[in-house]
Structure formats: C-alpha cells, structure tokens
C-alpha cells in the first residue's frame, strides 16, 4: 500500500474529504443506476401478472354467467 496506515489512507494529507466524497457520490449513483431498474422490472412484471389475472377473472365470469354484458365474447356472439 502507498499509505503507511489506514488513517493515512482516509486522511490523504488533508485531501481525503474531496477524494472520498467523490468516491461516495460516484458509487452511490452507480448503485442507483443498477438498483432502480431492478425495482422497476419487478413492478413491470407485477403489472403484467395483474393484467393477466384481471383478464382471467373476466373470462371466468363470462363462463359462469353468460349473460354478463362486460365480456367481449358475449358481444361477439350477439353480433
């Protein structure tokens, strides 16, 4: 190691504040660039599965209650 001990590495002859602040901000933003899309992906997949659930429910409702007006199949048949 270039520095004599760990404290010297943190201090860096008084320049440590600048160096470590830059490193901290850079790493934080980089981490955010990776974590944010992962969260977003989960939200998107959940959204798709909710959509599918809703569609399934509608189809199920249409089967059990054929006179329900909300189903798309019904309107096609009546046409």
């Amino acid at each position: 190691m270039y520095f004599e001990n760990f404290a010297a590495l943190i201090n860096m002859d008084g320049h440590g504040v600048y160096v470590w602040a830059s490193v901290a901000v850079t790493l934080a933003t980089m981490l955010w660039l990776v974590i944010a899309p992962l969260y977003k992906q989960r939200a998107l997949l959940n959204e798709v599965s909710r959509d599918m659930q809703r569609q399934q429910d509608r189809e199920l409702a249409a089967k059990t209650n054929p006179s329900a007006p909300s189903s798309s199949e019904n309107t096609e048949e009546s046409n």
């Binding site: 190691m1 270039y2 520095f3 590495l9 860096m12 002859d13 320049h15 440590g16 600048y18 160096v19 830059s22 490193v23 850079t26």
Partner: peptide, 28 residues
C-alpha cells in the same frame, strides 16, 4: 481498479492525493 488507484498508486507530485479523483472522474 478502485483499491489500486486509491490505496496503491503513487501520489501526484503537483496535486498530491487529490489527483486520485482521476480514477473515477476520467472513466465517468
């Protein structure tokens, strides 16, 4: 790269240790 640059690379003659910011500034 980060450990190498921050802890093992020698310091700059003119700018001292603040030069180590180069290891994130220039790649970014």
């Amino acid at each position: 790269g980060l450990v190498w640059g921050l802890a093992f690379a020698p310091e700059d003659a003119k700018q001292g240790n603040s030069f180590r910011i180069i290891y994130i500034h220039v790649p970014a």
